[in-house]
């Protein structure tokens, strides 16, 4: 489909995210943010992507057995896919509620577990899909359009 001279090959970034690795947690989202700044995207997009990617990354660190974060950057939108190996979310609607959290005390002491992560992603996203269920991995598909 070479219909015009300005053909965009979307830029893909890929990161693995380890379970419980609080030292490196946030690095993937931080790199995505840096790339968007270097590409000259407007601040409003950078902010929304950074927040959504960070919350998705932290959920993999805190609630999952490990997974990966992928970002695809195009001229009109950025998509983030966060994929993990389980244990899955049995009640997605409940997980989406503000304030709902199953974070253990140890994690809460570190300042996480307000139950605001998924609602925050929802606020930042233009489109947001969660694929999950008990006993399987969770996939978040987050699309953020450049134009708010």
């Amino acid at each position: 489909m070479m219909d015009d001279n300005k053909q965009f090959k979307p830029l893909k970034l890929y990161f693995t995210v380890e379970q419980g690795d609080f030292i490196r947690a946030g690095e993937a989202s931080s790199k995505i943010k840096k790339v968007l700044s270097q590409l000259g995207f407007p601040g409003s997009l950078i902010r929304r992507v950074a927040i959504a990617a960070y919350e998705a990354e932290m959920n993999i660190v805190i609630h999952s057995w490990g997974g990966e974060l992928e970002a695809e950057i195009g001229p009109e939108h950025v998509t983030i896919v966060a994929r993990d190996r389980g244990p899955g979310i049995s009640d997605i609607a409940l997980a989406m509620e503000e304030g709902y959290s199953t974070a253990p005390d140890k994690v809460r002491e570190m300042g996480f577990g307000a139950g605001m992560g998924l609602p925050n992603i929802q606020n930042c996203a233009t489109e947001f899909i969660i694929e999950s269920g008990e006993g399987r991995g969770t996939v978040l598909r987050i699309l953020i359009a450049v134009k708010e």
């Binding site: 965009f8 270097q38 000259g40 601040g43």
Partner: peptide, 20 residues
């Protein structure tokens, strides 16, 4: 206004190429 000195290129397609 944001200062764009860290931006690789004003043109997004070129900026992406440069980033790669």
């Amino acid at each position: 206004e944001p200062c764009s000195v860290l931006v690789l290129d004003e043109d997004l397609a070129l900026a992406m190429q440069k980033l790669e």
